[in-house]
Amino acid sequence: MSFRRFIQDLVLYRKMMLISLGLFVAGIIMGNVLTSFLSALLEPQIEALQEVSGNLSQSASPELSFFIFIFLNNAVKSLLVIGLGALFGFMPIVFLVMNGMVLGYLVQAASSQGADMFDLIVKGLLPHGIIEIPAILIAAAYGLQFGYLVMKSLGKLGARERHERSVKWGEYFRSAGRAAIWITVALFVAAIIESTITFHLVQT
C-alpha cells in the first residue's frame, strides 16, 4: 500500500488517466460554451448545493459541518465511481462529464455576472481543487480501467487455454485497493483545506 507503488500504478494506467482528464476538460468546455442550453439541467443541482451550503453555514460549527459533508460526499462518490466502472465504464464517463460541466457552467455564469475571476479561481477553487480534482480524476480513471477490463474479459470468454485469458484481475484489484486508500487520504486533506482556508477566503 506504499505511495511509491501507487505512483507506479498511475504510470501503468496513464492512458486511462489521459482519457479521464480529456472527458473532464470536455465537460468544462461544454459547460462553458452551452451555458444557456444546460441551465435547466444544472441549475436545480446548483440550487440544491446552495441550500445545503446555507444550512451548513448556520450550524454551530460551520467548518466541521462543511468538512464532514465535503469529505463524505467526495469520498463516497469517488469510491463508487471506481466500483461502478464495472458497468463498462459508463458511470465514470457520466461522472467526469457532469462534474466538468458544472465547473465550466459555474465559471461562465460567474464571469457573465461580473465576478472577479482571479478571486474565484485563486480563492474559491485553487486551494482545495489542486488536490481534489486530481483525486477525482484518478478515481474515474480506475473506474474506466475496470470497465475496460470487464469488456476485455468478456471478449476472452471463448479462449480455450487459460494463458489466453490475459486479464489479471488480482493485479487490478490490488492497485485499486491502493488507489482507494490514497484517494481517500487526498480527499481528506482537500476537505480540510476547503472547509477552513477556502471557507474563509471566499468570505473575505
Rank of each mutant, 00 (worst) to 15 (best):
M1Y: 05
S2N: 14
R4C: 02
R5F: 14
L10F: 09
V11D: 01
V11K: 07
Y13W: 15
R14D: 11
R14N: 08
K15W: 12
L18Q: 04
L18S: 09
I19H: 03
G22V: 09
G22F: 08
G22Q: 09
V33R: 15
L34K: 12
L41W: 14
L41S: 08
E43A: 13
E47L: 14
L49M: 15
S57W: 03
P62D: 05
P62S: 09
F67N: 00
I68L: 05
F69W: 08
I70M: 07
L72T: 09
N73F: 01
N74P: 01
V76T: 15
S78G: 03
L80P: 00
V81K: 01
I82C: 07
G83E: 07
G83F: 13
G85P: 12
F88C: 09
M91L: 13
V94C: 06
F95W: 11
L96C: 03
V97D: 07
M101N: 01
G104M: 05
G104Q: 11
A110P: 00
G114I: 14
A115Q: 12
D116P: 10
M117D: 01
D119C: 04
I121L: 10
I121N: 04
G124L: 00
L126E: 04
I136W: 02
A140P: 07
Y142T: 03
G143C: 07
F146V: 09
F146H: 15
V150A: 04
K152Y: 11
K152F: 02
G155Y: 06
A159Y: 05
R160M: 10
R160T: 08
R160K: 13
E161S: 09
H163I: 12
E164Q: 15
K168T: 13
Y172L: 07
F173V: 14
R174H: 04
S175F: 09
A176H: 06
A176E: 11
G177H: 06
A179C: 09
I181C: 00
W182V: 02
W182R: 03
A190D: 01
H200Q: 08
L201K: 11
Q203K: 12
